[in-house]
């Protein structure tokens, strides 16, 4: 079932001098099965946006629909919605609280009414899917490395078997290899488990390499919503929004200006190298 945002507005501190329009007339359809990147600089409304998708924030005006129901309705069961739409916050390891990893991962499934047995099976399954090392299932949260903690936290949400998985800056604070490991893991979840992924990031490189659709947020509005190639072709506009295009695209653009026949849509260094090579060889 798709998630639909229909003319959603969110105003914080309405009627005061500090009134902030965090979301301004946002309409989006998020069908199942996609791998979506949401980018925007700090304060562009991307964090507010994703919290609307599982009902943690309700719109000031407009509606959010899931499964044909308006989630803002009084009798709508938002707890039920959170089963289907999992949200992993920034620095999710800060939410771990149980004595060991496994018990912590069981917290979510138990909350949504799974039996002890079901919850444990779900936890095992989730920990395996995020590639958490077997020998650390019963380790204390404090003994884990940064990347391991983050995997455990993602597993905590994944164990609830959501159809949509939203991740807010899942790579923040990790080193380069840690970043790729987490992104590969997420990509794997999308491919094998068929989960719809919404990846919030301010790293263009991450988004360019993995997603099939990019939503660019700026000042609470959807500035672009398209495939990565298309979105990154608006390099000047993106830079005005405080965002930069992936470095390979930037280099390709400069080479085109210099008169080389390079593909302007390259996103990764591999693609850029191929395209430059071709331009140099087959002139």
């Amino acid at each position: 079932m798709p998630l639909i945002l229909d003319h959603v507005c969110q105003v914080y501190n309405a009627d005061t001098e500090m009134s902030v329009r965090a979301l301004d007339d946002v309409s989006l359809i998020i069908p199942e099965g996609q791998f979506i990147g949401v980018i925007g600089h700090t304060g562009s409304g991307k964090s507010t946006l994703i919290q609307h998708l599982n009902g943690l924030i309700l719109p000031t005006s407009g509606s959010v629909y899931y499964n044909g129901q308006d989630i803002t309705d009084k009798d709508f069961d938002r707890k039920e919605l959170r089963k289907h739409v999992g949200l992993v916050f920034q620095y999710p390891e800060h939410q771990l609280f149980e004595t060991d990893v496994f018990t912590d991962v069981c917290f979510g499934p138990k909350n949504i009414g799974m039996s002890k047995k079901e919850a444990e099976l779900a936890a095992f399954d989730a920990l395996r899917k995020v590639g958490f090392p077997d020998d650390l299932y019963y380790a204390s949260v404090f003994e884990l490395s940064g990347g391991q903690k983050r995997r455990a936290a993602v597993a905590g949400v994944l164990a609830m078997k959501p159809d949509f998985l939203i991740l807010d800056e899942p790579t923040a604070g990790l080193d380069p290899v840690g970043r790729y490991e987490i992104l590969d893991m997420v990509s794997e979840l999308h491919r094998t488990a068929g989960i719809t992924i919404i990846l919030v990031s301010h790293s263009m490189e991450d988004v360019a390499m993995y997603v099939e659709r990019v939503i660019v947020m700026d000042k609470g509005r959807v500035a672009y919503d398209d495939v990565p190639r298309e979105v990154f072709s608006h390099s000047e506009e993106l830079e005005k929004m405080g965002l930069s295009i992936p470095e390979p695209s930037k280099i390709a653009r400069q080479l085109i200006k210099a008169g080389l026949n390079v593909d302007p849509g390259v996103l990764t260094s591999g693609e850029a190298a191929d395209s430059i090579y071709k331009a140099l060889m087959y002139r």
């Binding site: 380069p176 390979p248 260094s269 591999g270 190298a273 090579y277």
Partner: peptide, 20 residues
């Protein structure tokens, strides 16, 4: 060493591998 290289450096390195 689990480290990255700057974007331009990587592209240059890949081009070199191809013989440029």
């Amino acid at each position: 060493l689990r480290l990255d290289v700057p974007g331009p450096t990587r592209i240059a390195w890949e081009l070199k591998k191809k013989g440029i």
